[in-house]
Design a binder for these strands. Sequence first.
DNA 1: TGCTGGCACTCCCCCGCGGTGAGTGCCAGG
DNA 2: CCTGGCACTCACCGCGGGGGAGTGCCAGCA
Lengths: 338, 338
Amino acid sequence: MLSERRLEVLRAIVQDYVGTEEPVGSKALTERHKLGVSPATVRNDMAALEDEGFIAQPHTSAGRIPTDKGYRLFVDKLAGVKPLSSPERRAIQNFMDGAVDLDDVVARTVRLLAQLTRQVAVVQYPSLTRSTVRHVELLSLAPARLMLVLITDTGRVEQRMVDCPAPFGETSLADLRARLNSRVVGRRFTDVPQLVQDLPESFDKEDRGTVSTVLSTLLETLVEETEERLMIGGTANLTRFGHDFPLTIRPVLEALEEQVVLLKLLGEATDSGMTVRIGHENAHEGLSSTSVVAVGYGSGDEAVAKLGVVGPTRMDYPGTMGAVRAVARYVGQILAES
Amino acid sequence: MLSERRLEVLRAIVQDYVGTEEPVGSKALTERHKLGVSPATVRNDMAALEDEGFIAQPHTSAGRIPTDKGYRLFVDKLAGVKPLSSPERRAIQNFMDGAVDLDDVVARTVRLLAQLTRQVAVVQYPSLTRSTVRHVELLSLAPARLMLVLITDTGRVEQRMVDCPAPFGETSLADLRARLNSRVVGRRFTDVPQLVQDLPESFDKEDRGTVSTVLSTLLETLVEETEERLMIGGTANLTRFGHDFPLTIRPVLEALEEQVVLLKLLGEATDSGMTVRIGHENAHEGLSSTSVVAVGYGSGDEAVAKLGVVGPTRMDYPGTMGAVRAVARYVGQILAES
DNA sequence: TGCTGGCACTCCCCCGCGGTGAGTGCCAGG
DNA sequence: CCTGGCACTCACCGCGGGGGAGTGCCAGCA
């Protein structure tokens, strides 16, 4: 068990190291923080903390730096979430107002997050899985070619081409459009399959093939697009990483280009609370010296997607968490309005 | 005027430097290339080339490296466009086939280009300005709220919310939809404004306000979206830049996040031929040590958008140009098919 | 006139050197 | 259990000397 003071020492080490980016020694600690004890005492505490694996020294007879485990303890027990200053809050509001498009909202969110945290920002587009259908549109492009357009309540639009097995008349098209919409508008995506299951039966024989094709395309769209799109930004902030550049930055850039990896990263935050993954806690190898702070956001009480930032394990956790949380709230608000 | 052999020397210098990334000296040159003259002669030639500003030495008594002007001459006069090997061609085909979506096509193109050139790839979405309207759809979301969906012949979809000044009935809506489409489908965006100019007049008084609002939203969409979207990839390749990292890579990453900058970069290639901007020829300061190879692509004979790569001035120009050109052709082909 | 070999010179790069200082572990005393 | 003192470790820095690649120039030769 760690005494109160030792936790205090750990907190001081984390704070100093995050600020200076240099291993912190016992003497410097007692000077910068009022711990009320001598360097020698701090040294003993440090030895204990090192035994427990919370801190480490890069080289013998150098200062200490926090380990992943140390950061974890810091985040869990020692650090709060630092609320944003009111100028910052105002900046968010100014920046997000004036967004028109869904694309625009996401783009602005990314820029904002990157700017506030000075790290790499990742924003997932509002999910289709949990959203509902606002409208399904069918357009005839050629006698046997349709376009299917799906509009979600989050403002997202997906389109697909449909090649019909047989020509499909305008009246049949209007019919299908109407029946389809009356069944699925306002419903959740997950409910759609059973809602349209019996639809082909109510059509003329020659049209059934086309109706089935359209439906299966629709269902495909729902499933496929569960692989969400996302947007990233602020990669230039990676240059603040450390001095041993190429080795650190390369795998991170690579990971950032793998949508799958990023989605997994955000996805691990299953609950609606904030998730912090530190260093090796990230499954992906290239991100073993980075931390991910993610949180869900949504238009209602329910999260429809995630957003977060990726930065060095040595980051200002309270500040970052505050910014991430604040931005998520604002985006949710904006989505609810539209 | 430069003699034939001096040009040959320049070519050799460029090729060696691109390969080794190290200043190249007279002796090494004569060993690696069969110039048929002695190092001393090459030295004289080098001195001449340096006087003319084609090459420079980083430090006194070091080898020479090409200047921007040297690369320019190399690209203009000395280098051809290296065609891809047939395995590479096959790889392109394999990679691009199976793209369904327009998004998918663009995404695959980016990955492909980045992989082939081992540089940063930039692909602009097919332009709206030169495309034609495939369909305009109007959906009623609420009594006084519409959604406008614009579908282009390149498969792009844009949607906008429209708040109506007055409720708008379903019959009026169908009417407007029909008339709008009969006028604009198949027409170029630039022609749309005059084609719909007199449309409000033919509607009942109470509907005119709404019709006007819808039309102005449509026109806005056409104009606004002339600011094209684009996609980038392969940023991890930036790590191969040089050893003096942070200074070089940071401004590049920053520039890459500025859509405006990138669009300008690609946009400078006004003609349909390939454009190569070398080093300081790029207006943007942060890109003064990078070169941009860009080319237009399109579904028909006309270019509808641009794509290209951004890499160090020290790049394999013939190979890069070959890859860029080949990819552009394939993408054009694929767009034409859909 | 233009090419060549030779020669002296210039610097960058690498490596090994010792001094400095921050930091540590340990110990004895309060 | 905390503290001051002490010896030790080791990364960092600046210095200096070889080694080597490359250059410029010059005199000789076709």
